[in-house]
Nucleic acid binder design. Structure first.
Length: 470
DNA sequence: TCTGGGGTCCTAGGACCC
DNA sequence: TCTGGGGTCCTAGGACCC
């Protein structure tokens, strides 16, 4: 999908169409998630500090991400991809590989092109947004193709033309070559893909290590036989928070770690997982980042266990100077817990008589989620009694007013909310301001971008190469 | 007003085991 | 009569991706 988050917001908010839109964290330490193409013309791009974006494009609209909306649109797009092939590999909410050959939806250049264009039409019809398609014989080339096709385009890379196409491109075009590897290669005198191929595998392995060097050499030759994999197992679950101002108080740091542990366990349980290794992440005032981990005797999804492990790990970290970010994660995932094992063992030991005891060996699995006293009352003494206006009415979120109907928050503060009354199908709307506690005004769920989810497209076509839409 | 959040994969050293 | 070889697990850090 093209500039996905920003494009979705423009589709939802008629007055923003054709205007620079920046989606990302709006706090003092926020960064840009997505900039619309209009905003990119000012030099704004993903991962840029929001403060810098505001200097470059002071008149852009700045919005927080609304993942529920993006997830809804993403599901619509993934459903369309699923009609092309059972082999769909999502990379994120807005990007996926499709193995057209496995789906029988293309068998040569012409049928692949037809499938790609049909997909783009369907995406536009169903979501109201544009996507770009790269068609090629491998994942790497399909991805590079889709990147070049953006925005709102389609590119097919004819088999046999890969090397000549890649040769003059920057090494940074290849997946897996970021700032660090790019720098290494530049210092070694290599800036283009052709120069990588010339250097040879041995040289690249010497420079970058075994795995990275070897795979990069193959990519430089246009070789990539990685399969499209539809079901991938989750390996870790983590949550982290960057604080608006550094934390200095040790007690506060500890409280935040416990909160994060609870949030992490919530997500872990929601996914039906448990894990053996607890990881604490700390970013200090100077941006130096460290992790500490502890592996338990068996997998757990118990909030107390994770909280305590994270707390122990915190003991070994020097936080003088201040803490910028804290994170808690769980890896070594399983779909059972150690309590399950105990229960199983107990049941096996004493077959009939002992079923109640076996059940009580896993006492709080059903009683959960337990409201943790530590996280509730022990929490930040300096916390606001009520959420500030910006939190109650986040910029960009949908609202509904009893009299004026559907709109979205343009800004809030000083106990006031400014709302623009418009919705996906409407003309650009007018702005009105209300008191934050106006009972007529309530936050609402995102409206669909397209009125009736059209059901036009049909699966079809015999097939051949891989494609990626992004 | 410098630098998010959620992931994946790789490397390297030490412990431990046979 | 200095210090084998190979495998796995754990820990920490780094690069990269969206």
């Amino acid at each position: 999908m093209d500039a996905f988050f920003a494009a979705a917001e423009q589709a939802a908010k008629p007055s923003l169409r054709g205007k620079p839109v920046v989606v990302g964290g709006l706090g003092p330490r926020g960064v840009v998630s997505t900039a619309s193409y209009e905003a990119r013309r000012f030099g704004v791009h993903s991962a840029m500090p929001m403060a810098q974006a505001r200097r470059l494009a002071p008149n852009a609209a700045y919005l927080v991400p609304r993942f529920s909306l993006y997830r809804t649109v993403s599901e619509q797009v993934m459903e369309l991809l699923g009609r092309l092939s059972p082999l769909v590999e999502p990379l994120s909410l807005d990007e996926a590989f499709v193995d057209l050959e496995a789906g029988g939806s293309a068998h040569d250049t012409a049928s692949a092109l037809a499938a790609g264009e049909r997909l783009r039409r369907d995406i536009r019809a169903v979501t109201g947004l544009t996507g770009s398609v790269g068609l090629a014989g491998s994942k790497m080339l399909a991805k590079i193709g889709s990147e070049q096709a953006k925005p709102d385009g389609l590119i097919l890379i004819e088999p046999g033309t890969e090397r000549e196409l890649l040769g003059p491109m920057s090494v940074r075009t290849l997946p897996g070559v970021g700032p660090a590897t790019g720098g290494h290669l530049r210092r070694a005198g290599m800036t283009t893909v052709a120069e990588l191929a010339e250097a040879g595998e041995d040289e690249l392995v010497r420079l970058l290590g075994k795995a990275h060097g070897a795979s990069l050499y193959r990519m430089a030759l246009g070789h990539d036989d990685r399969p499209v994999v539809s079901e991938r197992e989750t390996k870790s679950v983590s949550v982290e928070d960057t604080f608006d101002v550094d934390l200095h108080d040790r007690v506060r740091v500890r409280v935040e770690v416990e909160r994060l542990a609870d949030r992490c366990v919530q997500r872990l349980r929601a996914a039906g997982h448990s894990g053996r290794t607890v990881v604490l992440k700390v970013r200090r005032y100077d941006f130096s980042t460290l992790t500490r981990s502890e592996t338990l005797r068996g997998p757990t999804d118990d909030p107390g266990m994770v909280r305590e492990a994270a707390g122990r790990l915190l003991e070994s970290v020097d936080t003088t100077g201040g803490v910028r970010l804290l994170g808690v994660g769980v890896t070594g995932l399983a779909d059972f817990t150690q309590e399950d094992l105990f229960a199983q063992a107990a049941a096996a030991e004493q077959p009939a008589a002992d079923i109640p005891a076996a059940a009580s060996a896993a006492p709080d699995r059903t009683a959960e989620p337990a409201p943790s006293p530590a996280a509730e009352d022990g929490s930040a003494p300096d916390r606001e009694p009520e959420a500030p206006d910006e939190r109650r009415f986040p910029a960009g979120h949908d609202v509904r007013h009893a009299e004026y109907g559907a709109g979205w928050v343009q800004g809030s503060g000083l106990r006031r909310v400014t709302v623009r009354f418009e919705e996906p199908g409407s003309a650009p709307g007018r702005v009105r301001t209300f008191w934050v506690d106006d009972p007529e005004l309530v936050l609402s769920e995102p409206l669909p971008l397209v009125p009736e989810p059209t059901d036009s497209a049909r699966a079809s076509g015999p097939g051949s190469p891989s494609s990626q839409s992004s």
